[in-house]
């Protein structure tokens, strides 16, 4: 039986696939379970603000249907997380990043975990965001608990059956975004 080691009065928010969350709450913990997905934890130590995203795939393939988008891609979730942090007072040059996940749990599948990990490292490099800790790759699922107000992270291996299933290709759906309004 899993034992909850969290201190009392902690509000745990789960960051699901395709989501991101930002908080400065001292009693907030952002949690997620990862297989081949990658979660980025960003932290600004000056304003004591943090955020986490959880993406399934790196970037849209060149062949993707141009009339449709999918917010599960890392390239969007990275930017949305950074912008939300900036909107709440963080500064990009102060951001510190942690990366977790990117396991290749099922040997028969494409190496999605490796592609996600490589994308995340490359993204941080291009954006000049310091990567202070990573726990990427391997064959085990991970659980990540992140305290956004302190920047503390706990990452541990969990049973692969706990990690959400990832399909090799995301399910495209009519664009929920990209709407245009001319004034």
């Amino acid at each position: 039986m899993a034992v909850d080691l969290s201190p009392p009065n902690v509000t745990r928010l789960t960051v699901l696939q395709g989501q991101f969350k930002v908080s400065a709450g001292p009693k907030v913990e952002l949690s997620t379970v990862l297989g081949s997905c990658v979660a980025t934890c960003l932290y600004d130590p000056v304003v004591e603000l943090g955020g986490m995203n959880h993406f399934l795939l790196p970037e849209p393939p060149a062949s993707h249907n141009r009339g449709e988008v999918d917010v599960h891609y890392g390239v969007y979730l990275m930017e949305m997380l950074i912008n939300e942090m900036l909107a709440y007072g963080a500064r990009k040059d102060r951001l510190r990043a942690h990366l977790y996940g990117g396991a290749n749990i099922r040997s028969g599948m494409q190496q999605i975990g490796t592609a996600n990990a490589e994308f995340a490292r490359g993204f941080l490099l291009r954006e000049r965001i310091e990567l202070v800790r990573e726990d990427l790759g391997g064959v085990s699922a991970r659980r990540v608990d992140f305290r956004p107000a302190s920047g503390q992270v706990r990452c541990r291996a969990v049973a692969s059956s706990d990690a959400p299933e990832v399909t090799p290709q995301p399910v495209f759906r009519p664009a929920p975004r990209g709407e245009v309004e001319l004034f």
Partner: peptide, 17 residues
Amino acid sequence: ATGWIVKPFDTDKLVAA
């Protein structure tokens, strides 16, 4: 501003705008 477009952008809508 002349218009407002929400990311992730849709290429066709962006080009049309």
